[in-house]
Design a protein around this nucleic acid. Structure first.
Lengths: 300, 300
DNA sequence: GATCATTGTTCTAATAATTAGAACATATTA
DNA sequence: TAATATGTTCTAATTATTAGAACAATGATC
């Protein structure tokens, strides 16, 4: 007699359908039969009394209402999962999962070494890493979508209850390839902002560590292009695929010859980056991880 | 096999238990047997592997973890119910959210009265207001970042598929304080444009209405300074904090004595401002809002 | 302190919901 | 045209949820 026809399960189903592209693939992912998916969708449509999919032959496309439920449903799913985690943390003092948002990294190897060490000592804690771009990190921290920010550029927002530790960022420069079709426009200060929004971000997405899950990028509008390591990132940007932060040392040659053009964003002292987390986050796992990251930082 | 043990139903159950004070009363409200409630709670506790209630004889008290799930669970329930409502309205031509870009307003009170009335009648439609400055409004409309422009200066771009209605703008003059350090430079027509960009905008940001969200300003490079009302705005600009449009009547004295200097932008007939939206935007909410705004306009 | 009503748990059986699998129509690809 | 894949429907089977009775524990009332 639940007055509310929307259930967590059906939201997970819709999410899987959208991610995998079809009822059949979604069924596979959820370990169910296709018919179960079909019935679940039908039931929701019936109870809401609206169409969520427009049946175009064998392929189904979301209606506007369907898109709305999908989009907001994902928020609900996310909130619900985190709620379960938080409840466990309250009960045990240890969080079952730590979400880390990475905005820039000086050394992927060093960072993942710390994470790896942590996971060896505390194998029950899951680590969930998501890439943040264009200062999306601070917002994600504020909204509780991540527990820890790594490499976010200053200034650190004040009066928000954050604890922050400056880390060496190397010298990262945001660049675009000179031959990129939008290069000229993005350098024009007047249009920069709107053009920036259209540019693809090239992001390192190291998948070689197990025990670590990945969330989708936190910046929703801009598309992302994922590469495995710094070399690939340099070449991808060189090829005009998109933009991204690169270590100055590595690309000085390209900068000199004008193949790479630096983008004029983040006027504030861009050499400073921060680790940051909420002061009121008392998770033991978070403390352990930040302790290790800071220790590694000062070792060098 | 659902990895997420929290369901909408069990949240409703917890909510009822807390509101009614006992499993038995909750069962009554939900038209279930007490045993069903008991099993539902047990199942959740088992799957989360934490205790939600501390059994003190016949009376059960929530544990801290239980209180957390109850509190956040209520948010989730609320969001979910609203989502169902919104989806239904989207399916019938109502948009879930209307983004309004404000470029100038003659009377904040009148405008927000209309918005408030609209929200009372259509509480499921979200209103998102962002401040536009320096003709950023037309671009935002074109790019679909706002659905409705309020108070944007003419001329209305043609051949773009916009519908526009002229509104009385009073007589607003863009000014800067004479004592502002960049006042001299900005008055030099040659450098005006680049100097303008560096100047802070003083913007009224009325936060006294609930049910309305705010986006960041659409002009990103220039910083904004937010004030609560027109009086504060005048004093802020007077103090040299930034620039902005002010009603001529209110500042005639300052203009005469030279404390305020008018900026020479928008040579076109600046007394005309417009409501504008895309013709192909058929949203019923947008229509309702524009109808009301126009009606209010002609009432005077 | 005895009685009585109320509560939450457990058991069993019944009911309702979800699901798998096969058959089919339709659409896409080679 | 054949071959593959998709989504719907049907039926039967499996699961999950629920009601109702019996019970122990608690608190209230006299």
């Amino acid at each position: 007699m639940s007055r509310n026809p929307i259930s967590i399960e059906v939201l997970e189903t819709l999410d899987a359908i959208d991610r995998r592209g079809s009822f059949a693939k979604a069924a596979e992912e959820l370990n169910k039969a296709t018919s179960a998916i079909s019935y679940a969708v039908q039931k929701l449509e019936e109870q809401l009394d609206i169409a969520l999919f427009q049946r175009l032959g064998r392929r189904s496309v979301l209606t506007p209402a369907g898109r709305l439920i999908l989009a907001e449903g994902r928020d609900i799913l996310h909130t619900t999962r985190r709620l379960a985690d938080k409840a466990k943390e309250v009960a045990t003092g240890w969080e079952p999962r730590i979400s880390i948002g990475i905005e820039s990294l000086q050394s992927y190897t060093d960072f993942f070494q710390v994470i790896n060490g942590f996971l060896l000592d505390f194998p029950t804690v899951e680590i969930d890493i998501s890439e943040c771009v264009l200062n999306g990190g601070w917002e994600a921290l504020e909204q509780g979508r991540v527990d820890l920010l790594v490499g976010s550029p200053g200034p650190v927002p004040v009066q928000k209850g954050y604890r922050s530790v400056a880390i060496d960022r190397g010298e990262l420069v945001p660049v675009i390839a000179a031959k990129h079709e939008l290069a000229k426009q993005v350098l024009n200060k007047q249009y920069m902002d709107s053009v920036l929004r259209q540019l693809r971000r090239v992001v390192i997405h190291d998948t070689s560590f197990s025990g670590i899950t990945r969330s989708e990028g936190l910046s929703s509008d801009g598309q992302m292009f994922y590469v495995q390591n710094m070399d690939q990132k340099i070449y991808a940007i060189l090829a005009g695929i998109g933009i991204g932060n690169l270590p100055k040392k590595r690309i000085q040659g390209y900068l000199d010859e004008g193949t790479f053009v630096p983008l004029d964003i983040q006027q504030k002292d861009s050499s400073e980056a921060f680790l940051a987390w909420k002061i009121n986050n008392k998770g033991k796992g978070l403390k352990a991880i930040t302790d290790r990251l800071i220790a590694q930082q000062s070792d060098k």
